[in-house]
Design a protein around this nucleic acid. Sequence first.
DNA 1: CAAGTGATTAGC
DNA 2: CTAATCACTTGC
Length: 160
Amino acid sequence: MIVEAEAYLGIEDKAAHSYGGRRTARNEVTYGEGGHVYVFFVYGMYYQLNLVTGPAEHAHVVLIRAVEPIEGIEIMRERRGKMVDKNLTSGPGKLTIAFGIDRSLNGEDLLGNRIWVEEYKNFKKSEIASGPRIGIDYAEEFVKEPWRFWVKGNAFVSKR
DNA sequence: CAAGTGATTAGC
DNA sequence: CTAATCACTTGC
């Protein structure tokens, strides 16, 4: 269950890889149709899972920052090593390890059978909080935009 | 709290 | 070609 996410607004957002229409081999899939996966590698160690959401050429994506394990916890424990359950998926780099996500999923169709999103639970607006995004200190006037959203009080929301 | 890690990018 | 940066995590 997705419990934390951030929006990146394509070419108009200084925090986004596609700011100003920047188009590289890495971010190419974000310019495609929504409903596909964008996976990239950061800090020499971690993959990040994003969902492309907009029409083609808009490069809008949602970064999945944290999830709460519902199924497959045993496999997640194996992949994460000796780690308390609370830390299995409580961050964008952690959850890709727990899910076994790597660059082979970049560009994958969310309607296929390798990775997909299902409706699981409808939260009320009052159960969702929002605030500034994390790790984008370079984004100048966009640093404070409240485009990070999380489930209030959920134990798997990433800490900072 | 700071090192670690290497792909990716921009800049020459 | 080379140097700097980075949508983070872990163990000190």
